[in-house]
Design a protein around this nucleic acid. Structure first.
Lengths: 125, 125
DNA sequence: ATTATATATGAATACATGTTCATATGTTTA
DNA sequence: TAAACATATGAACATGTATTCATATATAAT
């Protein structure tokens, strides 16, 4: 494609200029749906907070009750409970009630892989 | 430091009750450092927004310039530039300048793996 | 030179989010 | 039954963040 042809193919779409018409329409066909993009972002968002990262890292090693978790991470029970609620809503952790205590553990086959790859990444920084 | 000393010091400092002294001190030794927890969270945070997810998904497929990216994702150029700035700060993407245009591409060996596993996860939801 | 174009960026705004505090719920112990 | 305990949760507050708008910068075209 010559420079002239590229220039003449310039076109406006939602206030943006398209430089490479063919590439744009080609890649647009292979794009993630908005829904999948949102779902993926929600998954990674679950891991985007230091407290949740440490909760998950702990639960990968063992099933732990809430107050032990709070002790291990040296944070308030309320804060831990709130975060566990988030993780539970995404079905990344599951819980088991024993008397008045509640034991949490990982409920997802992918979380551990994500953590492992993430750790590889930060060790290569 | 004995188990008793650890638990009593935790009780003093953070208002949590420890149920299983031995488990707590055992797991605490294997805990992520605060720094690594923060770094991991920062990495996942980069993927925790739908716009950034879609940017990365696009760049995995091809090197694309800013305005094409804006066209593909149907978002403003400014918004895309701001997000690319974030991703660049984390060294997840790199850029190549050609004239007045700037081409972006993935600059991390782990991002693609994370996306692949993430996609597996959401397809199993 | 002047104008148009591609990208970057600071400021402002609206919205999301993590923690704390107070308290509710359900369970165990005295 | 009463008190202690483990956990959950709503509200409030402070902080973080994504987008838009206006504009700056650098390059290309006329």
């Amino acid at each position: 494609m010559s420079t002239e042809e590229i220039s003449s193919s310039l076109k406006d779409c939602c206030d943006v200029t398209i430089i490479h018409d063919d590439i744009v329409s080609d890649i647009q066909k292979k794009q993630l749906s908005l829904e999948k993009g949102n779902d993926l972002a929600l998954l990674f968002q679950a891991l985007s907070d230091p407290t949740r990262v440490r909760i998950i890292y702990t639960l990968i090693q063992a099933e732990v009750c809430v107050c032990d978790l709070a002790a291990i991470l040296e944070m308030s029970q309320s804060s831990i409970s709130h975060q566990l609620r988030n993780l539970r809503a995404l079905r990344l952790v599951k819980h088991r009630k024993v008397g008045r205590m509640v034991y949490y553990s990982i409920d997802d086959e992918h979380v551990e892989s994500l953590m492992r790859i993430g750790l590889q990444h930060i060790s290569h920084m």
